[in-house]
Design a protein around this nucleic acid. Structure first.
Length: 127
RNA sequence: AUAGCAGGCCACCUUAUCGCCGUGUGCCGAACUCGUUUCGGCAUCUAUUGAGUUUUGCUUCAAGGUUUAAUAGAUUCUGAAUCAAGUUCAGAACAAGGAGGAAAGUCCGGACACCAUAGUGCAGUAUAGCGGGUAACGCCCGUCCGCCGUGAGGUGAGGACAAGUGCAACAGAAAGCAAGUACAGUUCGGCUGUAGUGAAACCAGGUAAACUCUAUACGGUGAAACGUCAUGUAAAUCAGUGUUUAAGGGCUGCACGCUCAAGCUGAAGGGUAGGCGGUUAGAGCUUUUGGGUAACCAAUAGCCUAGAUAAAUGAUAAGGUUCUUCUGAUUUUAUUCAGAGGUUACAGAAUCCGGCUUAUGGCCUGCUUUUUUU
RNA sequence: CGGGAUGUAGCGCAGUCCGGUAGCGCACUCGGCUGGGGGUCGAGUGGUCGCAGGUUCAAAUCCUGUCAUCCCGA
């Protein structure tokens, strides 16, 4: 299977309603410092939408917040193929950054891989 | 060389691999180096300019709509919607672009939108030598005066206490309808001068960043304004009818003024979540010339320069650049060289402009003080 | 994006409107009462009034700027 590393606009989680729904009903997986909130959605087909959040409380500087969001987005983009290949169905993802200090990309990517593997082992067998 | 003052400029760079965002990519004919080429014609769209016509206001004139002419720029492929073209949506390829000097704080001033065409009075707020700049300002420029600095320079809410009211700790006889110490002089009624306290003492006292007065300016609410599309069951909305006692509502606190109401008939709509417009061509940027001491203004030529919305402008690798830590060598010290590691200062557009303030890395220019030499 | 509030002793607050002494409670230190603790009584220590500038003879208080924290509105 071809490894698709693109992250176009459709795959971004944008609906405000969907996000609040995630916080209320979603299940969570944590590999510190990243926390994944996910939910199985029925509306659209063959699509996994993902979003990224860094709380303002931990990072006051907008530059640092943007930087961490970019790192999370990049690591998800490079490793999302494993999720696409192992599961079927529609999911909404939201990645929360719980740490209070910035980390280099190498570490963030390693944690992201661990997190996605964890997701595959819990949800992949069902789907 | 040292310490300092003022002004200006830049905002890490290069290559490779993966990504993100919005913008653009007609028809016919001819030519050749046959291509995502060049040239010419036609059509459409956009922008600018000129002309005609029309609407509104306040005359010259200004703003908007529409028609036409000129100039400039753009018009690829695939799939879907559609009778077709055009157009719209999605994707691919290509092309040219993609954070700041403060984008920040939100402290002032505007543009723009709605509320009556934005009105009247009071209240309230702000400003305050004089002159100028500007769309406007509490900003900027020039200048007088005061204060600070040896100086280059910096800084100042700098009108009025000869309208009224208030306030003045301690000290002092006395801090304001008054009362009165000591000494000296004397025309011995009283008056004049000096002393002492204090920031300030018979003088039209001091104090207005005390109330206040004078002059000037300011209507309110903010892109969550506002318009529009889809969904569509109430209050409210719009149109017609109705016309009174007017409570009350209508986006400033109060008063005036304007306007609306209840009921009936008809129309079409709300909450919530969302799409599109507003939304990026503008008091725009750069060059040259002229006017002005300057801020700035005028003319000319060129340019198009981010538009995201859980929020794009990035990540990784290598090399250089900047800074810094450690080790070794050299040198009287400063420093220089080599190796290793860490780093790229402050900081992220959110309707848009003009300022102010704050954060911060580096470079350059001019000037001043002190010391040394000539 | 818009609106508002608060910074005073180790902690929680007065004082700010209307300018001249910085105070209250808890805590802390010392001493008394008790055999000791607790409790109580008395005395004492401790504050750049967030920071910077200005007005004033004099500023926690008036004015301007700025920093930090917290809250509210969609």
């Amino acid at each position: 299977m071809k490894v698709d590393t693109a992250y176009p606009k459709i795959e971004k989680l944008k609906s405000k309603k969907r996000i609040t729904q995630l916080f209320v009903e979603g299940k969570t997986l944590t590999v510190f410092p990243i926390k994944l909130i996910y939910l199985n959605t029925e509306n659209q087909e063959g699509l996994i939408q993902a979003g990224v959040t860094v709380p303002k409380k931990n990072f006051k500087s907008a530059v640092k917040r943007n930087h961490i969001k970019r790192l999370l987005r990049e690591s998800y983009r490079l490793n999302k193929a494993s999720v696409f290949n192992n599961t079927e169905g529609n999911f909404a993802f939201l990645f929360l950054y719980l740490g209070k200090e910035t980390l280099p990309f190498e570490l963030v990517e390693r944690k992201m891989k661990q997190l996605l593997n964890k997701f595959n082992s819990t949800e992949g067998s069902i789907g």
